[in-house]
Amino acid sequence: MNIFRLTADMTHLMSVIVLLLKIHTIKSCAGISLKTQELYAIVFTCRYLDIFTDFISFYNTIMKVIFLWTSFSIVWYMRYHKIVRRSYDKDQDTFRHVFLMLPCLVLALLINERFTFKEVMWTFSFYLEAVAILPQLVLLQRTRNIDNLTGQYIFLLGAYRALYILNWIYRYVTEPNYVHWIPWMSGLVQTLLYGDFFYYYFLSWKNNVKLQLPA
């Protein structure tokens, strides 16, 4: 475990905490895409199929449980909580899951490290995570008023992905035979998708004005 990896995981954890804070304290999920949250629940379910079969470390298992538990509870809150669900902007959040999931599944069946069920699901989770933010970015662009917590949530998600790239570089340099093209390439694509958002986030931060994406 290197410092980049630990910071990445903690940033990921913080993003989830920020989102849950918004849901719990303000009882609002305004500006949050349920489609993206559902895709994340699918991503973690497919990736962590090894949770009961392969023990890596106590840290690893705990974090997997946290990401599974929180992703499903966020979806539950947005769909079923009687107050939170009222703030969900269904008409703006129109992205279709299938358009993202189907190509990712086909790609996972074609390009993987090993053709086994668990391995294909693991690969699929990386391809899907790379594009899972798209419904959220589309919703963000449609939302005129982006509140601070939503902006911070997406910023932390993007930062987590960028830190993972540093972790991969560090591991590639320090560990022999550490080469993993599938997480690298999908991670790179995922991080690039945040580029535009980062640009406007820093601009609003620098000029001390409310974050707003151009239409």
């Binding site: 090894d50 392969d54 890596i56 470390s57 690893n60 974090m63 693991w122 080469v179 997480p183």
Partner: peptide, 10 residues
Amino acid sequence: TSHGSSHDEL
């Protein structure tokens, strides 16, 4: 194995 080492990431 080098294969397993990618799965130690979250």
